[in-house]
Amino acid sequence: MKLDLYKEHAAEYKAVKKPIFVNAAPAQYLAVDGQGEPGGECFEQCVGALYAMAFTIKMTLKAKGQDYAVSKLEALWYPPDGGADFETAPKSEWRWKLMIRTPDFVGKQDLREAVKALQRRGKNANAGQVTLEKLHEGECVQMLHVGPYEQLCETITAMLAFAEANQRRQHGLHHEVYLSDPRRVPPERLKTLLRQPVRKA
């Protein structure tokens, strides 16, 4: 049976349409940082580089007998500079970290070999920007958003209200898990899991 990290850590990926508390244990990700509009040129290049690395590493390890499922795309969103919020900051200034959760047995050496293999073929200029990062979010408010990405703020508002009512404040970056493929799921049915790390106020 091949490893599926989302099933292995099912409690961390509980997806319901009301705010709940979850505890996110330390996790390892392939990650790449960037800035710009989602769907824009830089964003798409980073998505491409991240998937190229994720599949190159996965298939190389699978051939060596360590099989696992490549997880979904996730992203951390940095608050815009100067205290502006996502509503008012121009999309070109949005900063994000795209991530794919990866088993702990993937190491820096696997990463180096994948970059080398991809760059030998050319056309994979961004592969070298992908890094291996650990993230420990701990206590989080989590909620499933169903609908277009443009309406995420309504769900976020509900999550923050829930945190406040439970004497919690934000502690860490807003985190999104893209459960649906926007290329084939209509906007009104897109599923996105939203996670906000919190601590006691």
Partner: peptide, 18 residues
Amino acid sequence: WERLMARAAPMGLLGESC
């Protein structure tokens, strides 16, 4: 597909937009 992927990955063939 399994055989192809096992060969192609270390060769760097699973690049962007493949």
